[in-house]
């Protein structure tokens, strides 16, 4: 429990740093940064190893926790008629299993909403609309090419470039489609049939849609407020879980001694407040933006 718990604490820090890009970098830059980050997290082999470790940790932590809880319940078949546990222990410490279960439910829904979409669905790609001057024909009188301002969508690709995307161009009836998208993210040259680039899934917009209210250019989401509230509540639960869990892990690993007990407990409490609070602030800001 302790090892997986502490590993998950580390995971939280990493995850938080990634998420913070959502609010600290704005505009297209932020979108690029976040989606590149999302791409990195899903494609880097080292990260892959870490992520499998994380899945394992979550599962192990949950299953072991469940088993321990069952054992612990069995260890006291008859309960006290009168019990005052609050006189000798903190409430979060006594409700770790329940807090943990809530966190687990949160993790599941969270993964369905973001992780699974990122991994398994053809999420819209990261695109940008740019105005270009395009020749739309020849002036019959002067023979000069007619240039028109056109709005063109570009796909942002993994090599950091914007590639024209097919959709808007096709609508413009300007030229035949140059590219087609296969397998969700791959841009293929239509004529040659060769892969030209890979687009980035637009997780950023997914997040913004999920938590934001009527952001320009994105579909509106009438449940955003509910989602924000649930997310914030979940973070509060996570905070309580960490309030006990962080220092408890040190105790279990035998890393707590009289000399450091104060420091560890303080660090645990700071961690339990700061990390979930920082997580929670993100959807709030998105919602308010």
């Amino acid at each position: 429990m302790a090892l997986t718990g502490l590993f998950l604490c580390l995971f939280l820090v990493g995850h938080l740093l990634g998420n913070l890009q959502l609010i600290f970098i704005t505009g297209e830059e932020g979108k690029v940064a976040f989606n590149e980050y999302a791409y990195f997290m899903t494609h880097n082999p080292a990260v892959k190893v870490l992520s499998y470790l994380t899945y394992f940790s979550i599962l192990f932590h949950a299953i072991d926790g469940l088993m321990l809880t069952i054992q612990n319940k069995k260890a006291r078949p008859t309960n006290y008629a009168m019990n005052k546990p609050n006189t000798n222990s903190s409430t979060p410490a006594r409700y770790m299993a329940i807090l943990g279960t809530v966190v687990l439910v949160f993790i599941c829904t969270h993964m369905v909403n973001f992780w699974a979409k990122m991994h398994f669905t053809n999420m819209p790609l990261h695109t940008i609309t740019k105005s270009i001057e395009a020749p739309v024909g020849q002036d019959p009188t002067t023979g000069q090419p007619v240039v028109k301002e056109l709005e063109v969508d570009y796909v942002y690709t993994t090599n950091g470039q914007y590639q024209e995307s097919k959709v808007s161009l096709a609508e413009m009836n300007y030229s035949e489609e140059k590219y087609e998208i296969k397998k969700g993210t791959m841009l293929y040259d239509k004529t040659s049939g060769l892969k030209v680039a890979e687009g980035l899934k637009d997780l950023h917009s997914q997040v913004m849609t999920f938590f934001g209210q009527d952001i320009k250019g994105l579909p509106s989401n009438s449940n955003a407020l509910l989602y924000v509230i649930l997310y914030v509540l979940s973070m509060a639960v996570l905070g309580f879980h960490l309030w006990h869990g962080f220092s408890s892990a040190f105790q279990t690993l035998g890393l707590r001694s009289k000399k450091y007990v104060g420091a560890i407990s303080m660090a645990g409490k700071l961690f339990a407040v700061i990390i979930p609070a920082a997580f929670a602030i993100i959807p709030i800001l998105i919602y308010l933006a």
Binding site: Q71, A75, P85, S89, A93, R94, M96, Q251
Partner: peptide, 15 residues
């Protein structure tokens, strides 16, 4: 012997 597991609540130390 069927004792439960330690979840570090600290109740024992207090009592």
């Amino acid at each position: 012997e069927g004792f439960g597991n330690c979840t570090n609540t600290g109740a024992c130390e207090v009592e």
